[in-house]
Amino acid sequence: MAQVQKVAVLVQDGAEPFGLGAMCEVWAEPYHPEDDNPVFDFVVATPRPGRVAGASGFDLHVEHGLDAAADADLVIVTPKRAYLDPSPEVVEVVRAAHERGAMVFAHCTAAFVLGEAGLLDGRRCTTHWRHVDTLREQFPQAQVDENVLYVQDGTIVTGAGAAAGLDAALHVLREEFGSRVAAAAARRIVIPPHRSGGQAQFIARPVPDCDVETLGPLLTWIVEHLDEDLSVEVLARRSLMSPRTFARRFREETGTTPHSWVTAQRVQAAEEMLERTDQPVEWIATRAGFGNAATLRHHFTRARGVSPQQYRRTFTCTADDAPDATVDGVAS
């Protein structure tokens, strides 16, 4: 599929405002010279243009009908209150978009629209953790995973509820335009630049007990020292905990294991260095904490689906674009 240029967001009666707003934050921004961000041909469309009932005490006015999505490179379906009763017209537009090769992204319970269109059969997908059982019951051929923030299977992307829609949208932006563009968008929105799709939706203790110190400062330290030994034993000692207690606390606060979290940060650092520098892969592997090029290639290819060299060829910026600052705390 060609790089995304036109983005169509589909809304239905009962539209959830956060879902629409989150997509506007990522895809509807004007040009910012300081970010050099891509600007998209962005349109909001609905089955019957005009007043669209909202879900939160106010309605929307949408000027465009669904025909405005007919040539979109990316079709996004936002959630609505009565998610088990999707618009047949929206279902058909989504099916047609997939058949012509467009990318289709469903945020939260909009995954049910994709199910009605037959696009989830045999595919990995997700939705808000409260509704995963219903999604399985409605579409038994779908491979529903409740333990992820978002999933991409081919040209189909599904995201979990609420804020995970931003994570999924930034994932699509990263896949299309590279880490630098996605990170700039995240900074503008003031959210973390990358939460792995494999991170758990439901974190056992999102707010630490008041008498226990959060791991937030440690996470910041890790990102600034990716080229050091970051084993569980080392991190546990730094946190004044036993390895077992530390590993449990880490999963409770982040929804993933220390190894998975650190590896994701190292892949992201490597990603940015591949874009911003012309240093050899072996050098990047050392600075990102992988130790050698073979280990970097293994983890990078597993996480991104392409080798570091392929990624660099796709997303390298010019020397004039490369900043002099450090990359996630790793000096260049």
Rank of each mutant, 00 (worst) to 15 (best):
Q3L: 04
Q5E: 05
Q5D: 11
Q5C: 06
K6D: 09
K6G: 10
V7T: 04
A8G: 03
A8P: 07
V11F: 15
Q12D: 12
A15F: 15
L20E: 14
A22H: 15
A22I: 13
C24P: 06
C24Y: 07
A28S: 10
P30Y: 03
P33F: 12
P33C: 09
N37F: 08
P38S: 08
V43W: 08
V44S: 11
A45K: 02
A45G: 00
P47V: 04
R48A: 07
R51D: 07
R51Q: 06
V52C: 08
A53C: 13
A53K: 15
G57C: 02
L60N: 07
L66G: 06
L74K: 04
L74M: 02
V75D: 01
K80I: 00
R81D: 06
L84W: 00
P86S: 08
E89H: 06
V90E: 03
V93W: 04
V94G: 02
R95I: 08
A96V: 11
E99D: 12
A102H: 15
A117K: 05
A117I: 03
D121S: 05
G122T: 09
R124N: 12
R124Q: 04
T126A: 02
T126F: 03
R130F: 09
H131V: 11
V132Q: 00
D133L: 09
T134Y: 12
R136N: 10
E137L: 14
F139K: 08
P140G: 10
P140T: 13
A142L: 04
D145A: 08
V148Q: 12
L149T: 00
Q152E: 07
Q152R: 05
D153L: 03
D153S: 12
T158N: 06
L173T: 06
E175W: 15
E176W: 08
F177N: 08
A184D: 00
A186H: 14
P192M: 04
R195L: 09
G197K: 08
G198R: 11
A200V: 05
A204F: 13
A204M: 05
V212R: 14
T214W: 09
L215S: 13
V223F: 10
H225Y: 06
D227N: 15
D229Q: 11
D229R: 12
V232S: 01
E233R: 03
V234A: 07
L235G: 06
R237Q: 14
S239H: 13
M241H: 15
S242W: 11
F246H: 04
F246T: 05
R249I: 01
R251V: 02
R251W: 11
E253M: 00
P258M: 01
R266A: 03
Q268G: 03
A269C: 13
E272Y: 14
R276E: 12
D278R: 10
E282Q: 03
E282D: 04
G289L: 04
A293H: 11
A293P: 07
A294P: 05
T295P: 03
R297Y: 13
H299R: 14
R304W: 04
S307N: 06
S307H: 09
P308W: 11
P308N: 05
P308H: 12
P308T: 03
F315V: 03
A322C: 15
A322P: 13
D328N: 15
V330D: 04
S332Y: 13
